[in-house]
Amino acid sequence: MVLSHTFSSSEVNSVSSASSSAPQTPETGTARVKRGMAEQLKGGVIMDVVTPEQAKIAEDAGAVAVMALERVPADIRKDGGVARMSDPDMIDGIVEAVSIPVMAKSRIGHLVEAQVLQALGVDYIDESEVLTPADEVNHTDKWAFTTPFVCGATNLGEALRRIAEGAAMIRSKGEAGTGNVVEAVRHLRRIKGDIGRLRALDNNELFAAAKELRAPYELVREVAGLGRLPVVLFSAGGVATPADAALMRQLGAEGVFVGSGIFKSGDPATRAAAIVKATTFYDDPKVVADVSRGLGEAMVGINIDTLPEAERYAERGW
């Protein structure tokens, strides 16, 4: 556990360094700049795209960012084989095509893929279980990068371990490429439920809770005080409809990643715009009903219990 790197967001938000002794030289890659970037994405939809044309469709539909990929998770499932970081030329093409932030995925523990993505100038790196893990023991030390990272989690302990490693944003893992939201719901409820239980503990109990969660005590104490993660929490994995996106927000996600759900559907542009609107008006069933009309065919889903264990991405990472 890399305790020396943990700090509380009360320190991040402190004004003590701001007014009097602030450095005159600009500081890049600070925790505030990395986490603050994710704060700007809240209430928004981040869409998987595989071509510059798709990226433009996503931007026109109101996406807050795009995830540049070579294959969407549904195709990674279908094709099998080792899934790696995308081709640099392909990422460049998408960066050129849009003005919104561009994210890209590195394999879990693949330091060099992450270094390459930083060198390419992507705005956020997703250290992702959707790609084939490169290290079965270690995730990437994300403090070592200027580019911020988002990581997946299935429960609070996992989320806090990623934050301790330097993740500036957390998403549920869900079960990507299935069009089935059940795993994302499970992960979101688990994370929120774990936080709720921490809130009820007194200070003496937090030490044992940290041990059970296998997470640094300082972060556990901070979450117990805040009642939420110290970084932005999005949902990912299996969102296919506007109602799915609204559901994830009602369960506490601050925004939504949509992978295969858009460009594996009948009318991507219309569906993408509808999911954006439903994410903003997630608590207004009339809006969600309205935007759910005339969307054409949704992607064909997969039932998770028919997935062989080796094909369950959510179990990758720890």
Binding site: Q24, G29, V33, Y124
Partner: peptide, 19 residues
């Protein structure tokens, strides 16, 4: 882009108490 995002002290006219 994000890699160039930064923090720096800025004096704002009309905001008292330093940058």
């Amino acid at each position: 882009r994000q890699n160039e995002s930064f923090e720096a002290a800025v004096e704002v006219a009309g905001v008292p108490g330093g940058p």
